[in-house]
Amino acid sequence: MGWGDFWPAAAGWAITWIPVLGPLGILATALVAYFAYRQKLEADRRAQWWVRAQWALEASLSANPRRSLAGLAVLNDLKTSSLATREDRELFRLIGVTAREELLGGGSGSTVREARPGGASTVESGPMPAATSVLADALREQVEKLAGEAGEPSPFLLGTSGTPTVGEAQNH
């Protein structure tokens, strides 16, 4: 086949296949755009998940036990999210183990932390009022859930009867 036969053959091929390749190109472009959109959506959801996780980590380390309870409840809920990776779950479990050791290290008596400027805190022991006892029990429950492998959502986030919601726990 010489150059003289090439151009008529190429023209015949183009007439046959260009009408097919045009729509296939549009379909391929649409698929790429769709997958790019899904990837961006997932990345945005993951970024928002991480913002909530950062808040929960900060709140769980708060000297205010109610804020700490809210942070632990959110951490437990985030741990069960489909956006949480295996590494995230392990990190939350280690945080729970550390918090459990800190709670157990305080002994059976009550301890109240008072925050001081510069990051220092004082610890006072004494009789525990009933409300503080309930709060301490809720903190222990959240820490145990975080340290354990249970994947159930936190009742504090679900707002079940008799338990505060995150907003209520955070505002007191």
Rank of each mutant, 00 (worst) to 15 (best):
T29V: 15
E101H: 12
S68V: 05
S121H: 11
S81A: 13
T98G: 13
Q39M: 06
E87C: 08
A56M: 04
A84Q: 04
A73D: 02
S121D: 04
G106I: 00
R116E: 15
A11F: 10
R86Y: 09
W50Y: 10
A36F: 04
R45K: 08
A70E: 07
K40R: 14
L27D: 08
S110P: 00
W50G: 03
R86P: 04
L69G: 03
E101R: 14
L78W: 00
G126S: 06
F35V: 10
F35L: 07
P127S: 13
W17G: 01
N64C: 08
S110A: 15
T85Y: 07
A120F: 14
E124A: 15
V74N: 04
L104K: 09
W49I: 07
G126E: 02
L83I: 05
A28G: 15
R67P: 00
G109V: 13
G22H: 08
A43Q: 07
S110D: 12
D44S: 15
D44M: 14
L24E: 10
V112H: 04
G71F: 00
R38W: 05
R113C: 01
L41S: 10
S125M: 09
S82M: 05
T98C: 01
Y34N: 13
S110L: 05
A10M: 14
I95Y: 01
T98W: 03
L91H: 13
A56E: 05
T111M: 11
A28H: 01
R67N: 05
I26S: 11
T98M: 11
T16S: 13
Y37W: 13
L21A: 15
V123M: 09
A84P: 03
G96Y: 01
V20M: 11
Q54S: 10
A130Q: 09
D77M: 03
Q48I: 08
L78H: 01
P129K: 06
R100D: 10
E101S: 15
A73C: 09
A120L: 13
V74I: 14
R113M: 10
K79Y: 06
A130N: 00
L69K: 01
W49L: 04
D77L: 06
S110N: 08
V74D: 08
A11R: 13
A43H: 00
G71C: 03
R52G: 13
L69H: 00
I15V: 14
R113L: 11
L21I: 14
L57D: 12
P23E: 12
A115I: 02
G118V: 04
T85P: 07
I95L: 12
A56F: 01
G119P: 00
L94D: 05
E58F: 11
R45T: 01
A59I: 03
T122Q: 03
S82H: 10
R38F: 09
G12V: 14
L41A: 14
T85I: 00
R66T: 10
I18H: 02
E87M: 10
T29F: 12
G106R: 09
L31Y: 09
A120S: 13
A28K: 04
G107W: 06
P129C: 07
S82D: 11
S125L: 12
Q54I: 15
S62E: 05
G105E: 03
I15P: 00
G118K: 07
P127Q: 10
F92K: 08
A10E: 12
D77N: 10
L21P: 04
I18E: 11
E87V: 09
S108D: 09
G107L: 07
G109Y: 06
A30G: 14
A53L: 01
L94W: 06
T122S: 05
S81F: 12
